[in-house]
Amino acid sequence: MNSFPATNLIVTAIFILCLATMAAGALLAVLTSKLMRSVCGLVVCCIGLAGLYYFLHSPFLALMEILIYVGAVCVMFVFAVMLAEPDEPANEEKPGAVVVWGGIALGAAGGIFWGLTRLGARTPWPAPETLSQSGSVEAIGISLLTTYSLAFELISLALLVAIIGALAIARTGRRRA
């Protein structure tokens, strides 16, 4: 299987590339002042995340991530940006408030990151005895239609209600204007 030279090195490099893509996309989504660039950052982040799903032995979810997030959710964001406001407003806060709120936000984010990283690295997570069940698309389909069929139907109902609700909300606004 490992006949190709330096396979491990190449796979690790691709993995680091996926991680970097995800991190850069997330930072871009949060830090830019133009909302359209922020949406593009979300797209980049989701592509990196799809790569990570692939490394987690789930090519089906990688495909779904790209299909749903990049293909549907981000396009919806683009429509909303076009219909509403294209830019993050100019900063009208006083310099002191910027420092205080930026410090609070940075402190909260840094504290959460530090705490979760410590927790994840220190805890001895138990390994299962066997990993016999494969996560193939066939297995996912069977469990969707047997064990999780009720949740599956409820999700479809939630999506239907969401579509009708979105139509109703957007439509009443239009009639008034």
Partner: peptide, 11 residues
Amino acid sequence: AAAFLLAVGIY
């Protein structure tokens, strides 16, 4: 990686 995403999202 997930903790980083969560921290960035909360920021």
